[in-house]
Design a protein around this nucleic acid. Structure first.
Length: 255
DNA sequence: ATGGTAGCCTTGCTA
């Protein structure tokens, strides 16, 4: 089973790229982030025509996540537990073909000296609690999405450019590590130790042309899922197209 | 130190 994650930065602006990706790469499951539309505006007809079921947790203008699957989708949560006042559409979880998957759009957290950074860390703590509960089910679990965290220095073109950025701050990196300490595996890093493999390149300052990116889109596997890990990679193709998202898809294959 | 780009449906906010 191939599971991919992609922050599309507006599903309506990226519908052509999305359709091409589904027909070209044919993932069994695609986790989308930043769809930037309400549920009713999601292009479900086009996606279903490509052979996919759709589950959406949308929001007007910002955020928004979705799960596309060739197999039936049983939604198990459409928000991250732990804060009923949190209305941002950043979490959608489902059971697909016996695997629990979640599409995660973790808060960016910048600037760090504001409540946005506190929200990021609080959201991370809620995610850790959810991850613990999912581990207890002993189902295979894939927590995929835009974590807005650079795990290590080898995952950025130049750490000096990111000092005091919320994506690189030690609090953020420690929060990601806590998920790993629970027993989750970074699917990409488990099979590829090359440095400087990126999933995001800023639109500004020619970052794509200079290959100055960061690796912030991750697929975290529970032990039961990691036991089945048979492949992983980053599809750079979509980032090189006209009117691309600033992120490109990351995928893994479970035997 | 700054500015650079993209999407939304705002003329600023988020990233």
């Amino acid at each position: 089973m191939k599971v991919a994650t992609w922050n599309v930065n507006s599903v309506k602006a990226r519908l052509g790229h999305l359709s091409d990706y589904l027909s070209g790469e044919a993932p069994d499951v695609l986790l989308l982030q930043e769809i930037k539309c309400q549920d009713a505006d999601f292009p479900s007809l086009e996606v279903e025509a490509a052979g996919y079921r759709v589950a959406v947790r949308g929001q007007k203008s910002y955020n928004g996540v979705a799960i596309l699957s060739r197999h039936p989708i049983e939604v198990t949560a459409d928000r991250l537990p732990g804060d009923p006042s949190d209305d941002q559409a950043r979490y959608l979880e489902a059971r697909v073909a016996g695997v629990r998957v979640a599409s995660i759009y973790l808060p960016n957290g910048n600037p760090v000296d504001t409540p946005k950074f506190d929200y990021k860390l609080a959201w991370f703590a809620r995610l850790e609690a959810r991850a613990r509960d999912l581990l207890a089910t002993e189902e295979p679990v894939v927590l995929g999405g835009d974590y807005n965290v650079i795990p290590e220095a080898e995952d950025v073109y130049d750490p000096a450019d990111w000092v005091d950025d919320a994506l690189w701050r030690m609090e953020s990196r420690r929060a990601l590590r806590r998920l790993l300490w629970l027993g989750f595996t970074d699917a990409f890093r488990a099979l590829d130790d090359r440095p400087h493999q990126y999933s995001f390149w800023d639109y500004q300052a020619g970052r794509w042309q200079r290959n100055e990116g960061i690796r912030i889109d991750h697929l975290l596997l529970s032990p039961a899922a990691a036991d089945r890990l048979a492949g992983s990679g980053i599809d750079r193709g979509p980032r090189g197209r006209e009117r691309a998202s600033d992120h490109t898809p990351v995928w893994c294959r479970l035997a």
